[in-house]
């Protein structure tokens, strides 16, 4: 799956490309930014390779955007490519957060700033709710999925069952109920 030699980028090019996304992707939806840059603009991956990377990135733990960056970086230039891509996608946002954090530290006791931040925090809750409902549209409308969804929610939110316990109890059952149908033997 190595790209053609003609468009195999250097580590600096990989870092720069991912850092540009890391610095400009305000408002989430990083995976879409990554797709546009890697598939359409740079042509470092084709659509199918990108979807395969996304599939792994979504299934394994970790952030989808970081996971996809690591897989893409690995395909482009091995371990160092993966490190360059991950550093590029993560570091600009951290820098921005440090600046926001410094401002927060300085002004948090100002009642006007505190009021504005309370408004931002409320809006952030609305955003997360929308993303959850949108991504989960299929699961909310399927009775079996809805059962596992609500069970997980109630255990974590109201009974404060720890996450490892929930995964250990619920995941095996949910996966087995989705098990592949065995093909009839000829």
């Amino acid at each position: 799956m190595q790209p053609k030699a003609s468009n195999r980028p250097t580590l600096a090019q990989i870092f720069t490309a991912f850092a540009r996304i890391g610095a400009t992707s305000f408002g989430g939806g990083l995976v879409a930014y990554l797709r546009d840059a890697l598939v359409d603009e740079k042509k470092w991956m084709d659509e199918e390779e990108f979807l395969a990377a996304l599939e792994i990135g979504q299934t394994l733990p970790g952030l989808n955007s970081v996971n996809v960056s690591i897989i893409a970086g690995r395909h482009l230039a091995g371990p160092l490519g993966a490190i360059s891509a991950a550093a590029g996608i993560i570091l600009p946002g951290v820098l921005a957060l440090v600046i926001l954090g410094l401002l927060y530290d300085r002004f948090r006791h100002n009642p006007e700033v505190a009021a504005a931040l309370a408004g931002v925090a409320a809006a952030a809750v609305g955003l997360l709710l929308q993303v959850t409902l949108k991504i989960g549209a299929k699961q909310f409308s399927n009775l079996k999925d809805l059962f596992f969804l609500v069970a997980t929610f109630v255990m974590v939110a109201f009974f404060h069952v720890s996450l490892p316990t929930v995964l250990f109890l619920v995941a095996p059952v949910a996966i087995i109920l989705c098990r592949p149908k065995t093909e009839p033997k000829q």
Binding site: T59, T132, G136, D145, L149, A151, T152, V156, A157, V166
Partner: peptide
């Protein structure tokens, strides 16, 4: 099966 089984759990966790 792993992907389909994990999906509702992920959404439940996000809701939490």
């Amino acid at each position: 099966a792993v992907q389909r089984g994990m999906a509702p759990i992920t959404i439940g966790l996000m809701l939490a």
